[in-house]
Each structure stands twice: as C-alpha cells, then as structure tokens.
Design a protein around this nucleic acid. Structure first.
Length: 361
DNA sequence: TCTGTCACG
DNA sequence: ACGTACGTGACAGAC
C-alpha cells in the first residue's frame, strides 16, 4: 500500500486516505461527506481503473471489517458454556424490532462467501441440528395487507413469484416474458417502497437516469394504486395525530413531520411510511416467537429457540424431534397471519444444518 | 463524543 | 432547486 501511495500512511484513517487519493494521487472525487470527500466502498467502486491502489483498498476494507468486527472480537464473546449470550433489547428500535448488542448477532456476515464462513462457528449442542426458518418477503406482504391492494393480495394468494408478477404489470409484458433485469428492477422498487424511496434513489441503485426511474415508479403505482394511496394516507394521518400506529397499537412519535426544516420533514415522512410496515412485521414475528416458545414448552419438547434475526429464527433441535419441530415452527410462524386476519398468507422457508452456514435453502 | 464506514434485516 | 431508502451496532480515528 505504501508503494502504491508513494509513502507510508494509516489506511484506517479516512483523513489520511483522502489526502492520498484526492491530493497525492489526484483521483477524481465523486461524493462528499460533512467533512470532505467520501472514500466509502461505493465511491471506490467508481474509482476503479483510475489507479491500482483502489482495488487493494477495497480488498483491505473487506478483510479488515471481518477481522476487526467479527474474527477476534466475536471469539472473545464466547462464555464458559461455549455459547455467546447477546443482549436482546426490546426498547431501542423505534419500529418495535429487537436490537442485539454485546455482541450484535443481527449482523453476522452472509453476503460474501468469505464472511459467511464465520457462521460455521455457530453450532448446536452434540446430537442436535439447527433449524433456520424465515419469512419470505414479509414486509411486502404487510404492505399488501395494509394497502389492501387487490393485485398484490391476489399475487400472494396464488403464491406466484411476486417480483416476476410485479415486473409483468410494471413493464406490461406477460409474466413468462419478464427478463432478469426487469425482475431485478421490480424487486428493487418493491423493497424501496417500504422505505419511501423516490425516483432519484431508485435511479442511483439501478444505475439509470432519474427520468427512467420515475417512469418505473409511475408504472408501479398505476399497477398497484392502493399502495400509493396507503402511503399518502399514512403520512397524513401521522401528521394530524403526531404519531403512527401499527395494528397492534405500537405508536411512533414523529414530531419532525411539522419541522420547518425540509430535510428533517421529508425524513420523518419516510419514517412514517416505514414505521407501520417494519413495525407490523416486527409485531407479527414477536407474537410468533412467544407462541413458538410456548408450544415447545407445552409439548415438552427439548428443542430451544437460540436466536432471532428480524424475520428469521434459529432453533436447536435434538435428532428425535426434527420432524415434529420442523412442522411446528412452520405452522406457528405462518399461523400468526390468521391471528390478526392478515389478507395474505405468510410463507415460511426452512432449512437444516449442522452449522448456521450450512442451513441455507 | 462525533464521524465515517460497513455488517445485517 | 432542493435532498434524495427504513431500522440497527461495532470499530477506528479525529477532536
């Protein structure tokens, strides 16, 4: 790195790295932060090819993240019983999700193969396997319910590939003719919805111009008009009440909806749209966890809940209970849909593994 | 203590 | 013309 930079510097120092990249090497800055030009991964990606140091930096950041946050640190958290006992906090996340700290077990790597290897360290007791069950597109299903959108509800009811179906309606082609990129764009729109994403944000993520992103969004809202209506109604209601409220009565106060500061106000509007969606998904999942724990107890099963990750649960199951518990977990998790009269079914995917890394569908 | 960065859903 | 996707926690360096 020294040789590439023309001298020694601390790679972990953003300040020093800025000097190296944008002054000594005179690379073209792309984005700014409060304190100067950005050096984050997205920026570095776009600087690729300008100088060989960029590739090395990206790789360094990747392995250094794994080393400093997970490798040695996580190993040090293992208690004398061989387990990690994180704290799950009920009153931190404003939406009703749990948060996990000391350590955070909600962000164990999974997206790269190298990072995913860390999950091999998470193993059940001898004679047990891990059952990993998660909800498929729970937030999108919650949107379908809240917006009471006939098109979305029908798509979920018929168990169709939701992103393909969405793409077909947005791009006006038969479902079987939807291309890979079209499906990906529809998927991005669907997920962006829950966050109040606008054309600009969609354009950034898809690498297209804002006008084209706007056309896609317009087409989406033409296809699923109740979704836009629901978003608008949610913000209006929050504005007059001062808070949002989930079906379970969970409130989130949003005073910034009346802020004179435009940025704060718009952020609060996005939070209003998201709170009911993320919040209801969190509420449903927590009901499922309580029921699951109760059912294991009631049926005198030895299987135990060991971790939850927002829409996913890990259960440690002895060999002779696999069949029973596998069926029970799926039934309890999907069962909460009926409990609140959800307009769409909740689909659950399950996988078994002798480590967390192996349990993949 | 704040900022930038990056891991996850 | 603006500013531009929600929710977290941990780490390292700067101040």
């Amino acid at each position: 790195m020294h040789d590439l930079a023309g001298g020694p510097f601390n790679v972990n120092s953003v300040k020093q790295l800025r000097e190296v990249l944008y002054e000594q090497l005179a690379l073209t800055p792309v984005r700014k932060t409060k304190t100067g030009f950005s050096t984050d991964a997205r920026t570095l990606e776009s600087l690729r090819g300008q100088h060989p140091i960029v590739e090395v930096l990206l790789r360094y950041r990747e392995v250094e993240k794994l080393r400093s946050t997970y490798g040695e640190t996580l190993a040090a958290e293992v208690a004398s019983d061989g387990r990690i006992h994180a704290t799950f906090r009920q009153t931190v996340a404003r939406t009703g999700r749990l948060s996990s700290d000391r350590p955070n077990l909600h962000n164990i790597p999974v997206r790269t193969e190298e990072g995913r290897q860390l999950r091999r360290a998470f193993v059940p007791s001898p004679g047990h396997r891990l059952l990993v069950a998660d909800y498929d597109q729970i937030e999108l299903r919650v949107i379908a319910h809240l917006a009471d959108d006939p098109g979305l509800i029908a798509a979920f009811a018929e168990e169709r590939d939701i992103h393909r179906t969405t793409a077909a309606r947005v791009f006006g082609v038969p479902a079987e003719e939807v291309t890979g990129p079209q499906r990906n764009r529809a998927k991005m729109v669907s997920y962006g919805l829950a966050y109040g994403m606008e054309a600009f944000g969609l354009a950034q993520r898809l690498g297209i111009v804002t006008a084209e992103a706007q056309e896609i969004l317009d087409a989406y809202f033409r296809a699923f008009p109740s979704v836009r209506a629901h978003m608008e109604q949610t913000v209006n209601e929050a504005r007059s009440k001062g808070y949002t409220e989930t079906l379970f009565g969970r409130r989130r106060s949003l005073p910034d909806l009346h802020s004179p500061n435009r940025g704060l106000r718009m952020a609060a509007e996005r939070q209003a749209m998201n709170a009911g969606i993320q919040g209801l998904a969190a509420d449903l999942f927590k009901v499922a966890l309580v029921r699951l724990d109760g059912a294991l107890e009631e049926q005198a099963l030895a299987a135990r809940l060991v971790l939850q990750v927002h829409d996913e649960v890990l259960v440690e199951v002895p060999g002779d209970e696999e069949e029973t518990v596998g069926a029970l977990v799926a039934e309890v998790l999907s069962g909460v849909a009926d409990a609140v009269g959800l307009a769409v079914p909740l689909k659950v995917s399950s996988a078994w593994g002798s480590t967390w890394a192996d349990a993949k569908g």
